[in-house]
Simulated assay, not measured.
Amino acid sequence: MTTDDPAARLAGVRDAIARAAKLAGRSDQIELIAISKTHPAEAIEPLIAAGQRVFGENRVQEAQAKWPVLRERHPDLRLALVGQLQSNKAADAVALFDEIHSVDRASLIAALARAMESGRRPDCFVQVNIGDEPQKGGCAIADLPGLLAEARAAGLPIVGLMAVPPLDVEPAPYFALLAKLARDNGVAGLSMGMSGDYPTAVTLGATHVRVGSALFGARA
């Protein structure tokens, strides 16, 4: 069901998460990240009013343009960076975001570690290129143990893994693989699942789901 009412959309997504969690026998907390990239503050405010508290952006510069004012009005909001991060934007990202879901290479780990000397320490997820797609960010599966070791040695607060399965294929095997990689490498968080597949991701262990169009409607 689609609706123009942001509160109703939010309630529908939360209900779908709860149903999927029940199906999987889960009682743990699942974080819903409302992906607000390309959406202006006036489209975000109704979701905040409806009780949503965690939002996600793809680009540091876009987030810098709209979130300082929103957070001044709503100091309890959390902000997640879900898009690729250039090393030269690491300090800006650490200053603005509470979660960074796209740690995927040694140079970025080094830049984030330097930026975190400021005292701000956002939760970090290592992004895995789960479908081995050349156009996508994320480290190769074979490189994951080494990259995690490097991130931990640098003092990054690594809380989980993130992945985006290939488009137009059944996502469940990719979600299951990411969950196995997390278990094998001793991390608890799983950032996986988007508007088209987040209930499946929840049944397979997602702790963070990144939902955009199901909450905001289709982007222009």
Rank of each mutant, 00 (worst) to 15 (best):
R53H: 14
M194E: 06
S107F: 05
R53V: 13
P68K: 03
A142G: 10
I35M: 14
I109A: 03
Y198T: 01
V164I: 15
I109V: 15
A8F: 01
R14G: 02
G212T: 06
Q61M: 09
R152Y: 03
Q86W: 03
P134W: 04
V13Q: 07
A182I: 05
C139H: 01
R121E: 11
L177K: 15
G160A: 02
I35Q: 10
A106F: 10
G83N: 08
R114S: 13
A21N: 09
S118G: 14
V202M: 09
D28H: 11
G205L: 07
A201S: 11
K66D: 03
F216T: 08
A8P: 03
W67A: 05
N185I: 00
Q135E: 15
A149H: 12
D98G: 12
P199L: 06
Q61H: 12
I141G: 05
E170D: 15
K180H: 15
N185T: 03
G56I: 11
S107N: 12
P157A: 13
R26A: 10
G193E: 06
R183E: 06
P46Y: 00
A110D: 15
L190C: 02
E62C: 06
E57T: 03
L79G: 05
D4S: 13
D76R: 12
F55H: 05
I109C: 14
P46A: 01
R53E: 15
G146A: 12
T2L: 11
A49G: 07
G119M: 10
L23I: 13
V69M: 12
A90F: 01
T200P: 05
E150V: 08
V202S: 05
F216S: 04
R73F: 03
S195R: 05
G217F: 07
G196D: 06
S107D: 13
R59Y: 06
D143R: 13
R210F: 09
A179K: 05
A106H: 12
A20E: 08
G217R: 04
L156Q: 04
E72D: 14
A142C: 06
S118T: 15
L204R: 15
M194W: 04
Y174W: 12
L190T: 06
L147V: 01
V202K: 06
A153S: 13
F97T: 04
F97G: 01
D168M: 11
P6T: 00
D15Y: 11
R114A: 13
T2Q: 13
I35L: 14
W67F: 04
Y174P: 13
D123E: 15
A80I: 11
P171W: 07
L144I: 07
S87A: 07
S36F: 00
A142H: 05
M162I: 05
A140C: 04
L148P: 08
T200F: 12
R14K: 04
L167D: 14
A142Y: 09
A206N: 06
I130S: 01
T207H: 04
A179H: 06
A95E: 04
Q127V: 08
A179I: 10
G12N: 11
E72K: 15
P46Q: 02
P171A: 03
A176L: 11
A90N: 00
G12A: 15
G146Y: 08
A65N: 05
A201K: 09
G205H: 06
D123S: 15
A49R: 10
R121V: 13
L70F: 04
R152N: 02
L70E: 07
G155K: 07
I35E: 14
M162R: 00
